[in-house]
Write a protein that binds this DNA or RNA. Structure first.
Length: 337
DNA sequence: AATGCTCCCAACCGCAAGCCC
DNA sequence: TGGGCTTGCGGTTGGGAGCAT
């Protein structure tokens, strides 16, 4: 990559010589770039920069266009649906930001990367665990993601009650549809994104409830790890205070622990969910979408597997900062305080 | 009001792969 | 086939905005 270094050095010299600008873009530069791309199209960024009269590197122009000026970009907060997707896809692909971004229309890899670094990693830091640790992955999978699903469902239900429309606080995109060319379902995930939670978990939920023992026998590594530690308590933590006592990481929540850890299981009556889940499991190679929408998610009384985080102090779980204000309220209600 | 701190995000950097002649 | 150039990706950083003291 010596050539690249030479080129970079060359660009650096041009910058030093005042021939190239860098730093924040001005409105004039944005207009120049937009107008030029509008009339000539993208590509050949170096020559584009020169032809457009921009004193910028092609690289800088490309980045500005892709991350900021592109007309199909979505602005604004990351929605719960998008958060769910990001968490799920990241658990599957890791820091493959561009690949993840492909599944979030209108979002850039840079935006997703920033979201991950500023929000998700912050939470990991608060929990005093590494963002790549199994502990944090379990927290995401069994606490954060179910909560997001609840929020999504609540927003959808509210939207449906309001003239079958869209929840006020949810951008139109999130309710998809053919009109915007985005996902047909608000909660559509790529088929291979279903691996975050064991497919058996979805299937069991769709069939009438979560079979905890089956979950323990799942081939999901995280679940498998837990199975060896929960023999006594796996029968029913919600009715067995002794089980909770044996799980120090649950203790700070006291009697509300099982509610805090309640799974968001599919309504057994949801044939759509049943089909979607089983279909996703069987057609995993076909890139068919795995629909999480069109279902009735409920906070079932069925139990969650204990988090495989023996050294994770859930008492230090900073509710206010981890969740939104709505989540905080939900937590408070759950706690009965 | 001033200062310091934290958060967030746009922009940059280095590197690698792809493309074209 | 190899060199020059372009594109794409992931990591890092600088600075503005907002908040706390």
């Amino acid at each position: 990559m010596d050539m690249a270094h030479e080129r970079d050095a060359s660009s650096e010299e041009e910058v030093m010589a005042g021939e190239l600008r860098r730093g924040p873009w001005t409105v004039e530069e944005d207009l120049l770039l937009m107008n030029y791309v509008a009339s000539h199209g993208e590509g050949r960024w170096n020559s584009l920069a020169r032809s457009a009269g921009l004193k910028r590197t092609g690289k800088s122009c490309r980045l500005r266009w892709l991350n900021y000026l592109r007309p199909d970009l979505r602005r604004g907060n990351i929605t719960p649906q998008e958060q769910l997707l990001i968490l799920e896809l990241h658990s599957r692909w890791g820091n493959r930001w561009s690949k993840i971004a492909q599944h979030l229309p209108g979002r850039t890899d840079n935006e997703i990367k920033n979201y991950w670094r500023t929000r998700v990693q912050k939470h990991a830091k608060q929990l005093k665990c590494d963002v790549n640790s199994q502990q944090f992955k379990d927290v995401m999978r069994y606490l954060w993601m179910p909560r997001l699903v609840e929020r999504i469902q609540a927003a959808t239900a509210a939207g449906q009650q309001q003239h079958g429309g869209v929840a006020a606080d949810t951008p139109p995109m999130c309710h998809g549809g053919a009109d915007d060319g985005l996902y047909a379902s608000p909660y559509e995930l790529p088929a291979d994104a279903c691996g975050g939670w064991p497919v058996e978990y979805y299937a069991a939920a769709a069939a009438g409830g979560v079979d905890h023992q089956m979950l323990m026998n799942s081939n999901n590594p995280a679940v498998a790890e837990m199975s060896g530690t929960t023999t006594a308590g796996s029968s029913s933590p919600s009715s067995d205070s002794g089980a909770v006592a044996q799980q120090p990481w649950l203790a700070p929540l006291g009697g509300a622990a099982e509610e805090w850890l309640t799974a968001t299981a599919c309504d057994a009556s949801s044939a759509a969910m049943h089909d979607a889940v089983l279909g996703a499991g069987q057609q995993n190679q076909q890139q068919e979408p795995c629909l999480l929408g069109e279902t009735t998610w409920t906070t079932a009384s069925s139990e969650l597997p204990e988090l495989g985080v023996a050294d994770f102090e859930i008492g230090s779980f900073d509710v206010e900062s981890i969740w939104s204000m709505d989540d905080s309220l939900w937590y408070t209600q759950t706690q009965g305080v």
